[in-house]
Structures are given as C-alpha cells and as structure tokens.
C-alpha cells in the first residue's frame, strides 16, 4: 500500500488529514464567535449538534482524522530520526527562510495535543459525552454551551492557558497549511510565496477567531458588556 510504504504517500496522508483538521478548525472557530454575539444563538448550535446521529458521525470522522494525523506524525518522525544517522552535527547552523515552526512541528503538535485533552475534558466530556451517556458530568445542562464557556473562562488562568495553546496552534498552522499544499503538489515557483502568504492569512484568521473568546472574557466582558 503506497500510502504506508512510500515517503510521498505517507506525507500525502499527513497533508490530507491536516487539511481536513484545518477545515474543522475553520468551522469550529466560526461557531465559537457566536458565543460573543449571542449566547442564545450559541446554545442553539450546541443543541443542534449535541448527540444527534450526524454530530456523532462527524465527531467519529474527526477523531479518526486526529488519530491518523498523530500516528503518522510519530511514524514519520521516527523514520526521519533514523535517516538522520546516529551522529549529530557538532555545529548546526540556521538557514534564512527556514521557519522556526517548520523545524518544531512535532513539539508544537505535542503542546496542541496536551491542551486538546484538557479541552475535551472541559467541554466535550461535559456536553456531547454527557448527553450521549446520560450521566451528569457538569453543573449545567449539556446543551447549555454558553454557560460552560462562561464558567471556564471566568477563571483567568484558563484564559491564559487557552491563549498559549492558540499561539502554539498558530505556529503549527503557518507551516502546516502551505506544507500540505506543497505535499499534494499544488504548488510551483510562482505560487510558492503566495501559498505561504495564504497559509499565514488563514492561520491568523482562525486563531484570532478562537482567541477572541478567552480575550473577551479576560477583559471582563463576559458578564457586563
């Protein structure tokens, strides 16, 4: 199977799952913005998604996307470590045009994964999981997303943690998006700088939309504005 046995095949799996996860982030960030505009509207989205069959199907595909992306990341990293050889360079220079993010995708991915587990516990476990199993996990009704958001972000430490997480995600995306296009072959000499710029713009839009929520609560707008 060339998607496992060939280097380009493995990278293709990374890029396709990566693009899929970026599309999910776009959807997720747009949905999140609603909590600022209208908490009632946000709760309506939460109720629509909830534990319906389509939301569960979507969540399963999404989880599979994450799992494949992470398994392949470890597999590729292991192979690359072996390919680099046993002896490391005594002096390793830095090159112009090589982004810091591109050299640290795995550590950045690790940070993102760590926070993702925390995030799943704080929201998914108390919302979709609670609704699915019927067990009582949070202090509010599982569909009352706005209440969960307000509760979590009333804690300033959580706001700060989420901002750190989003910064790591921003770095991961700035390299990930253009790299995915390069791997699928959708790039050339003319489009190379354009693809990199598009990647930076998409990453920044997604992250700013996500960051708006902890910032909104951090400056104290959650209760009064």
């Amino acid at each position: 199977m060339w998607l496992i046995n060939s280097s380009i095949g493995r990278k293709l799996v990374m890029s396709i799952t990566g693009v899929f996860l970026v599309l999910f982030l776009l959807f997720h960030s747009i949905m999140n913005i609603v909590v600022i505009i209208s908490p009632e509207g946000y709760n309506a989205i939460c109720a629509t998604l909830g534990a319906n069959w389509y939301a569960i199907a979507g969540t399963s595909v999404l989880a599979a996307g994450f799992v494949i992306h992470i398994i392949y990341a470890f597999y590729l990293t292991y192979q690359n470590k072996v390919a680099r050889g046993a002896e490391a360079y005594a002096v390793a220079g830095t090159q112009e045009g090589v982004s810091w993010a591109s050299k640290n995708m795995v550590p950045l991915g690790g940070v993102i994964l760590g926070f993702l587990v925390l995030h799943m516990y704080n929201f998914w476990f108390k919302m979709q999981f609670a609704e699915l199993t019927g067990i009582h996990t949070g202090s509010f009704d599982p569909a009352n997303g706005a209440a969960f958001v307000t509760e979590l972000f009333s804690n300033k430490l959580y706001c700060a943690l989420y901002i750190v997480w989003l910064v790591a995600l921003w770095f991961h995306l700035t390299h990930g998006i253009w790299s995915a296009l390069q791997t699928t072959g959708l790039n050339n000499k003319v489009w190379l700088p354009r693809v990199k710029t598009i990647s930076n713009i998409i990453s920044t839009i997604v992250i700013l939309m996500f960051m708006a929520i902890p910032l909104y609560f951090l400056i104290g707008c959650g209760a009064s504005c």
């Binding site: 280097s7 990278k11 090159q95 090589v98």
Partner: peptide
C-alpha cells in the same frame, strides 16, 4: 522515489533547509 525510500533517506517535511543550502 522507491529507490530513495529503500536507501533509507527520510521523509520531506518542507522546511526548505535544502534550498537554502
């Protein structure tokens, strides 16, 4: 590509260090 993989070269992650050097 099959030969390159067989000989133990790594997987490209598009850092661009090759082009720079």
């Amino acid at each position: 590509v099959a030969k390159m993989d067989e000989l133990g070269f790594g997987n490209c992650t598009n850092t661009g260090a090759c082009e720079a050097e």
